Simulated scan of single mutants.
Amino acid sequence: MITLKSAREIEAMDRAGAVLASIHKGLRELIKPGADMWEVEEYVRRRCKEENVLPLQIGVSGSIMDYPYATCCGLNDEVAHAFPRHYRLKEGDLLKVDMVLSEPLDKSAVDVSKLNFDNVAEMKQYTENYTGGLADSCWAYAVGTVSEEAAKLMAITKEALYLGIEQAVIGNRIGDIGAAIQSYAESHGYGVVRDLVGHGVGPTMHEEPMVPHYGTAGRGLRLREGMVLTIEPMINTGTWEIDTDPETGWAHKTLDGGLSCQYEHQFVITKDGPQILTSQGEERTY
């Protein structure tokens, strides 16, 4: 079922988005050659406890296991849902960090600083039943100086994100979003991942409608004021096809080993156009 969000619900998601954006901005200083990727997970966990927000990815049900971390950390050919781990980031790596957070909560209801994030079953009791404001955003980070190939992929993927958001206006259709992203990315010879898509948000992190990053203009569900969506194109240097880790059922990689990049914003459709709820600053820059 597709729900149009109230002003109260949008304000709650905006509060969540402000915290999430500030965490992404903080990661800019942390992600550099020689840093341990696990520090990304530790930083996000610390900020969650300080801001009293729930890391809503912990405990998400999977085909083999529930997701156990506050972040997804995709390195180079990893497309999405890869685990953070101990790995020394190298000059030229391309790292994507995705997270879903609640709005800041009243400590009388739940004191996040007292929760054990490593106890997935305990965390699931909080995250699975949460129905307040939440925000979802992925960002790509260049580790030191990246190759020309990686820099171009990052620029094209970010532009594709904003081209898709520009199509999210009242009266347009879902297909207009996907068509804008697909035509732009494919014009540069890139593959657009089709197995993973954007989606509605609220009261849980994955709601209808699904928002493919490919499609035909003028087709699909008509967009209405009050819809809150994510657009999160995953763009590959080679094929759009991906493979999934058979041991965990989570991490996806490009089928041909090529680089993959992703940027994601969450936004609400308003009469004045799309309003980004996870903005990190000046749009088309962050």
Rank of each mutant, 00 (worst) to 15 (best):
H199F: 07
E41A: 12
Y87P: 02
L89N: 12
A155W: 10
L163D: 11
G74T: 05
E9F: 01
D195G: 10
V40G: 07
Y263W: 10
A135L: 09
L221K: 00
G178F: 11
F83N: 02
S61C: 05
K25R: 09
H252Q: 01
H86S: 15
T237H: 12
P104A: 03
T145D: 15
T145Y: 07
G164V: 04
L277R: 03
A109H: 03
Y67R: 06
G258C: 12
I156K: 12
P68A: 08
P68H: 03
Q125N: 01
P104C: 09
Y141H: 13
G198C: 13
I269Y: 03
H252G: 00
G226D: 02
E9N: 10
M65G: 04
H206L: 10
A18G: 15
T204A: 08
M37I: 09
N116G: 08
R88P: 10
T131S: 10
V53G: 14
C73M: 04
G62Q: 07
W240A: 08
N76A: 06
K271Y: 11
R28E: 15
T270P: 11
T157S: 06
N119F: 10
G164K: 03
Q275M: 12
L20V: 14
G215F: 13
L27N: 06
N76L: 08
H252C: 03
D14S: 15
E208A: 13
L30Y: 03
A155V: 10
G200K: 03
W38Q: 13
R194N: 05
G175R: 07
L153F: 14
E225P: 09
T127Y: 01
G17H: 04
